[in-house]
Amino acid sequence: MTAIRQVEKMTAGDFPALTVVAGEDVGQFSFLKEEVLRKIGFDPADLSMSRLDMRETPYAQVQEELESLPFFAENKWVVLDSFLDLTTGRKRFLSDEDLKRFEDYVQNPSADTKVLIFAEGKLDGKRRLVKLLKRQALLLETKQFKEKEFRSFLQEELRNRGWKLGADLQDVLLEKSMLNVSLLRQNLAFLEDYSNLATLTVEELRQLLPKTLQDNLFDLSSLLLQGKLEAARSLMADLRLQGKDDIQILALLLSHFRLFLYVRFLNPSTEANLVAELKKLTGISYNPYRVRFAQRDSQALPTSYLRKIYEKMIQTDYDMKTGLYDKAYLMDLLMIEMVQGLEQKN
C-alpha cells in the first residue's frame, strides 16, 4: 500500500505521538502533506495547533512547543515543517546539541502532544535520529513511481470515481501528468464536470487539460525543430502574455537540449537503463517521460547541430543577462538560427 492510500484510510485519531512524512517524489510528497494536514483538520488559528519551520525556528522555541501542556484542549498538535536535518541533503539547520535534545524527546514523547514531521527529501538512514524515528514513529515515505505503478495508481483513481476510460485516454493522462501525483489529481479534477466521459476522444481530452509550462516548452521545441518559425514566434508571444520571461523559457530550452546531448552520448539498451545512467552522470532523477520525448525528438538531429545550438543558447543566455540587447530580440535571433541550422542540415 502506498503512503497516500494509507493516509486516505486514516482519521485524526489514528495518528500516533510521532509521524514522519518524507520522500523525494515532489508530487507525492506535496499531496501527502496536504492530505495529512486535512485529515487532522489543521487550522493555524486553532491555539491547540502550532506549525514551525525547522529552517528558521530556533530549537529552543521548538522544544518549548514540544514540552508545554495544551491549554485549550486535551491534546495538541505540533507540526515541524522542512525538517531537512533528517534527509541526505547537505544543508544543516540544527546543531548536534539540538539534535541530541530532539533525540531525547523522540525516546520519551509527551502523552498530550502529537508531532507531525515533514521532511522533503530522502531520509538519511545513517543518522541516529532517523534510526530512532523509524523505530518510534509512523513513517509515511513516498517512493518514486515507475510508469507501471503510476498507471495502476491512475486506474485506482478512476475506479474510485466510477469512471471508465480506455487505454488511449489513460495514456494521455499519464503523458500529461508526467508521473506527478499532484498534477494527475489536477488533471482529473478538470474532467469532473465533463458531461459525457463515455464519448470523450483523445483530441478532446488534450484540449480539456490545461497546458503546463513544460507542455509549452515541448511544443516550442517541436515547432522549431520542424522549421515552423512563425508558429514558434506566436507561441513565444502567448507565453510572454502569460507573464513568462524569456530568460526563464531559455533556461528550460537549455535544459531540454542538454538532455538531447546526454541522450545522444548515452545509449543504453533500455529506457530504464538510460534513466539510471543519467542519474549516475548528473545526480538528477530525470522523469522517464521527459527522457522518452528527448530520445524521440533528438533522434534525427546530427550531433554537430545539437552542439552548435546548445552553444548558441549559452551565449544568448549570457547576452540576455548582461543586457547586450533586448531579450525578445535575442530570443528571436536564436529561433531564426535554430531553423536556419535545420535548413542547412537538409
Rank of each mutant, 00 (worst) to 15 (best):
Q226L: 07
D238P: 06
S195T: 06
Q186I: 11
D245E: 14
F190W: 06
L250A: 05
A231K: 15
N216V: 09
V172T: 05
R233W: 15
A198P: 01
S234V: 09
L173I: 07
Q186M: 15
F218K: 10
G243I: 13
K244Y: 12
T201E: 04
N196L: 03
Q226V: 01
R185H: 14
D219K: 14
S221T: 15
D171Q: 13
Q248H: 13
S221Y: 10
L241Y: 10
L188A: 01
L252G: 02
L197V: 01
L241K: 11
F190E: 12
E204R: 09
N187T: 04
M236N: 13
E192N: 00
L225T: 08
D193P: 02
L220I: 12
M236L: 15
V202F: 05
P210Y: 10
L205H: 01
S234D: 13
L253I: 06
L174C: 08
D193S: 10
L188V: 05
R185A: 10
L252R: 00
L209E: 03
F218E: 05
Q242P: 09
E175C: 05
G243K: 14
E230D: 13
R185L: 14
L179D: 08
K244G: 01
E230L: 14
D246R: 00
L184F: 12
D215C: 09
A189P: 08
R240Q: 15
L197D: 02
Q248N: 07
L225G: 05
L253M: 10
E230G: 06
L174V: 04
S195E: 12
L188Y: 02
F190G: 03
K228Q: 12
L213E: 12
V172D: 02
L229R: 06
M178C: 12
R233Q: 14
R233Y: 15
L213H: 10
F218H: 11
I249Q: 01
D245A: 14
K211V: 06
A237S: 14
D219S: 15
R206E: 08
L239G: 05
Q214C: 06
R240Y: 15
D219Q: 15
E203R: 02
A251F: 04
L205R: 00
L235S: 14
K211F: 07
S222R: 13
E204C: 12
L224D: 06
L225A: 12
S222V: 06
L250D: 00
V172W: 02
R240S: 15
K176S: 08
L197N: 05
E203T: 03
Q242N: 14
E204G: 07
N216M: 11
A237I: 11
S177R: 00
Y194F: 12
G227D: 00
L213I: 11
S195A: 12
L205P: 01
G243F: 13
L253K: 02
Q226R: 11
L253S: 03
L184A: 09
D246L: 00
A189Y: 10
V202T: 14
A231D: 11
D171N: 10
K244W: 08
N187L: 04
E203Q: 08
L252E: 00
R185V: 07
K228T: 00
Q207L: 08
L217S: 09
L200K: 11
E203I: 01
A189R: 13
V172F: 08
N187C: 07
R206I: 01
K244A: 04
L173D: 02
